[in-house]
Simulated scan of single mutants.
Amino acid sequence: MSTNTTRGRILDYLALESDATVAHLAAALSTARSTVQRALDAMVEQQELRVLEEKSSGGRGRRSRRYQLAERPRPVLVYIEAPEEVVVRAVERDGTVLGAASTRRESAGPLTIDQIIELFRCAAENAGREIADFAGAVVGVPGPVTTLRSGDPAPHRRSAFASWGSNPPSIRQLQTWAGEDPVEVLETRLGLRAVMENDGNLSALGESLLGAGRGGHIVLCLSLVRTTGGGIVVDGQLRPGRSGMAGEIGHLSVRADGPLCPCGNRGCFWSEAGYETLRIELSTVVGHDLSPADVAARVAAGDSVFVAALRDFGARIGSIIAPVVGILDPDIIIVDGALGAAAETVTVGMREALVRDSSPLAARDLRVTSGELGDAAPFVGGAAHFHRSLPAATPAHV
């Protein structure tokens, strides 16, 4: 594991704990003590950490060195889009929400850039802060996000829209930024450093750090409500893949002669058998539109039709990802906590299908569980992702 990767995990840990020794960090991160010590030495030199020395018990022997952040990380503004709502939350690195602002989508079309900027300003105001008080801004988008070339002068910038230009696919969330670079827009209009990432990846990172994936080695997190996708986290590090498509179950083909998807594939899962399709089918059964919360309430109440439908839905997902599980061999699969009470029912069907269709060794000790953070997952992950994207500080020499 590289020193830079270890640095990010140390920053995550110390954002939640007041301080720690090298032994505590090595155990918590499952990383060799020598690797942790090298990272700590570099971070002290770069003035990211301060050292607290304590006398050993009894007053003899070597002093115990404890490390803590040199200064408290500033909060971040995180922007996430859903089919019917756009939300910006002011979030501390430890996931604490300071304030938020949201707006319902109008049927007339996507939000304007001015409306988006106003949403950021309202979230800051509701947190009792000025825009300048924030470390930066994060944009979570439902489309694939591809890393720019390593030679780019701003390597933290990531582009999801280069191949679409001013004609993005007919997904409402993607139309908001048609022809625009979200990072450039926010940096220009807000005066803050900005980064962009796929919202499913942000959810996966959030659940891995502070939710159901804590302590996991290889974690696959599935987003099913806001979008149909997912993310992969290995040893606390997001692994989006070369093209940004790692974990994107929504774009696995389930019908070869299905409709053409904006991704270039046919019969993708999100359009053929995703959660939105299921919700519409259940709405037809009861004769009126159902929200995800309505579906969860029906499941919690024990409605046999809804319980069976959600269990079958989980089984379909399990069958689709069974080959992936055999290849990736994760130790935890997290089902979108935004499903609420329905998530546990989905995991039951998924687990049954994975035991039946996947490699027995891969499925034997696999933990399939519902997310703990609910709809907060991408915001928690967004704050962590932003701070991890910051370059190491340059030491000040006098």
Rank of each mutant, 00 (worst) to 15 (best):
Val295Ile: 10
Asp289Cys: 05
Ala301Lys: 07
Ala308Pro: 05
Val299Phe: 02
Ile249Ser: 06
Arg266Lys: 14
Ser291Leu: 13
Thr277Arg: 15
Leu282Ser: 06
Ala273Asp: 07
Glu281Ala: 14
Val295Glu: 01
Ser271Ala: 13
Gly267Cys: 00
Leu282Arg: 02
Val307Asp: 03
His288Lys: 06
Val295Gly: 00
Val286His: 07
Ala309Asp: 01
Asn265Lys: 15
Ile280Tyr: 01
Ala300Phe: 13
Gly264Asp: 10
Trp270Asp: 14
Arg311Cys: 08
Gly250Arg: 00
Ala246Lys: 12
Trp270Ser: 14
Val299Arg: 02
Pro292Arg: 08
Glu281Met: 09
Asp289Phe: 04
Gly258His: 10
Ala308Glu: 12
Ala273Gln: 06
Leu310His: 06
Val285Leu: 14
Glu272Ala: 15
Glu281Asp: 09
Val285Phe: 12
Tyr275Pro: 03
Ala256Ser: 15
Thr277Cys: 10
Val299Ser: 03
Cys268Glu: 03
Glu248Ala: 08
Trp270Lys: 15
Phe269Ser: 00
Gly267Leu: 00
Ala256Arg: 15
Ser304Trp: 05
Ser283Trp: 04
Gly258Lys: 06
Ser253Gly: 08
Phe306Cys: 02
Ala296Thr: 04
Cys268Gln: 01
Ile249Leu: 12
Gly247Ser: 12
Ala308Cys: 10
Ile280Trp: 01
Leu310Ser: 07
Ala293Phe: 04
Asp257Asn: 14
Ala309Cys: 01
Ala300Arg: 14
Ala256Gly: 14
Gly302Glu: 11
Val286Ser: 08
Val254Thr: 13
Asp289Gly: 05
Thr277Ala: 11
Val254Pro: 04
Val286Gln: 05
Gly302Cys: 14
Gly258Gln: 09
Gly250Ser: 03
Glu248Met: 06
His288Met: 02
Ala246Met: 11
Pro259Tyr: 05
Ser291Glu: 10
Ser253Val: 11
Ala256Phe: 15
Pro259Trp: 04
Phe269Leu: 15
Arg279His: 04
Glu272Gln: 15
Phe306Ala: 03
Thr284Gln: 11
Ser304Lys: 08
Gly287His: 06
His288Asp: 03
Asn265Glu: 15
Arg298Thr: 00
Ala309Pro: 00
Arg255Ala: 15
Glu281Tyr: 09
Ser304Thr: 13
Ser253Ala: 12
Gly267Asn: 00
Ala246Glu: 11
Gly274Arg: 03
Gly250Val: 01
Arg266Leu: 14
Arg311Trp: 06
Arg298Ala: 03
Ala273Phe: 02
Ala300Asn: 09
Asp257Phe: 07
Gly264Ser: 14
Val299His: 02
Thr284Tyr: 09
Cys263Thr: 12
Gly247Cys: 11
Pro292Ala: 11
Leu282Val: 11
Thr277Met: 10
Leu290Arg: 03
Asn265Ile: 04
Cys263Asn: 12
Val285Thr: 13
Gly247Gln: 11
Gly258Met: 13
Ile249Arg: 06
Ala309Lys: 00
Arg311Gly: 08
Val285Asn: 07
Gly250His: 00
Gly302Asn: 10
Ser291Ala: 12
Val285Glu: 09
Gly267His: 01
Leu290Tyr: 02
Phe306Gln: 00
Cys268Asn: 06
Leu252Trp: 02
Gly264Phe: 13
Ala301Gly: 07
Gly287Asn: 04
Val305Glu: 07
Glu248Asn: 08
Trp270Pro: 05
Ser271Cys: 11
Val285Lys: 11
Arg255Gln: 14
Ala301Pro: 06
Gly287Ile: 13
Ser271Asp: 10
